[in-house]
């Protein structure tokens, strides 16, 4: 029963691989050190890197715990592979899901205000809708829809202001841009997709983009 065999990958498992106390306390010290670092770092604002720093330090700590406390360093490589596979599949899960959620238009980015009025999603919230309401007061019987181009963009009149390019806002970017990608939430993404695939579609389809068809 030897306790002097640490430091090389273990062979016979019925010989417990016993680490010296120092190794455990050193590990603990390292963990405490990184805890202090991560707490300290939280008082400094690194902007978008905040999350990255926190995750990196946490991963360092987790690696130390796994390697020493959980004995992975001295264990069958199989067990490291098993743990690694958990990380891999978790990464696949989070990465693919976020691939969607990050490239998908979300109501908030469109309406600019939350909570959205779920009972009437098209009322009030969207900048496009506001612009539309300004042009054509809702339900106003006085509006006579006789002028050409009253359904902007459909019937000729390319220069006519489109529904989304409201009078007040053709210059402002944020609400309008999102409003014109608008409503099609996800089209922005498809723009880039298709651009990369077929090269035929503009990257950011908007009301002013030339008609494709």
């Amino acid at each position: 029963m030897s306790s002097h065999d640490h430091g090389h990958a273990i062979g016979g498992d019925h010989v417990p691989h016993v680490l010296p106390y120092a190794a455990y306390f050193a590990t603990w010290g390292a963990l405490m050190f990184f805890t202090i670092i991560t707490v300290g770092a939280s008082y400094v604002n690194f902007g978008p890197a905040n999350l990255l720093i926190a995750v990196v330090i946490a991963t360092l700590k987790a690696t130390i715990v796994a390697a020493i406390f959980m004995h992975l360093w001295f264990d069958h490589r199989m067990h490291s592979m098993i743990l690694g596979s958990a990380g891999l599949f978790l990464a696949i899960f989070i990465a693919f899901t976020m691939f969607d959620t990050e490239s998908r238009g979300h109501l908030e980015s469109i309406t600019g205000e939350r909570p959205a009025d779920m009972s009437n999603p098209f009322l009030g919230g969207s900048a496009r809708q506001k612009a539309m309401n300004a042009l054509y007061p809702v339900g106003s019987n006085s509006v006579k829809l006789s002028a050409p181009g009253i359904v902007p963009g459909v019937f000729d009149v390319p220069a006519a202001p489109s529904a989304s390019a409201a009078p007040e806002a053709s210059a402002t970017v944020s609400p309008e841009a999102s409003a014109s990608a608008s409503a099609s939430a996800s089209v922005a993404a498809s723009g880039s997709t298709s651009a990369s695939v077929s090269g035929s579609v503009s990257a950011a389809p908007s009301a002013s983009a030339p008609p494709k068809h």
Binding site: F96, D100, E102, A185, V187, A189, S190, T193
Partner: peptide
């Protein structure tokens, strides 16, 4: 089989880019 689940969601409102990859 772990990389393809999004093909159940082509018309769900999933982003077009994600659908294409899936």
């Amino acid at each position: 089989g772990f990389l393809v689940w999004g093909h159940h969601m082509f018309v769900s409102g999933q982003s077009e880019l994600a659908s294409t990859i899936f």
